[in-house]
């Protein structure tokens, strides 16, 4: 299989990373090399194998419904590259 430029552009759109044509071409060739290496997996029959989602063989621990955080607006906004007193500020979203 081979990953073409169109696919690379589509993935870049999905990942919200802009790419110029030169970078896209380089990436297409890198991805092809990596995926031809990954294709090795196809040799393996896994039709009877259950996927392993979590290596920790335990169940989810539950937390009590208690309020222990919040009221840290200043702290939450502190690192934002664009904010005002109350909000994070982003360029206008056009619906």
């Amino acid at each position: 299989m081979s990953i073409d430029l169109k696919t690379v552009k589509h993935i870049s759109k999905l990942s919200r990373i802009s790419l110029d044509d030169k970078k896209a071409e380089k990436l297409a060739s890198d991805l092809n090399a990596i995926f031809s290496f990954i294709e090795k997996l196809n040799k393996l029959d896994t039709s009877k194998t259950e996927p392993l989602t979590s290596i920790a063989e335990t169940t989810l621990k539950l937390r009590k419904d208690e309020i222990k955080s919040g009221n840290i607006r200043e702290e939450v906004l502190k690192n934002s590259p664009n904010k005002n007193k109350d909000f994070f500020v982003v360029p206008k979203v056009v619906e």
Binding site: R63, D65, E66, I67, G70, I72, R73, F87
Partner: peptide, 22 residues
């Protein structure tokens, strides 16, 4: 009282960004 995956409050109508945890 608190959110699904964090311990900040859920009350309606609070000051903006005052019920936000890390």
């Amino acid at each position: 009282k608190s959110k699904l995956f964090s311990s900040s409050p859920t009350k309606f109508g609070a000051e903006p960004n005052s019920q936000v945890s890390l």
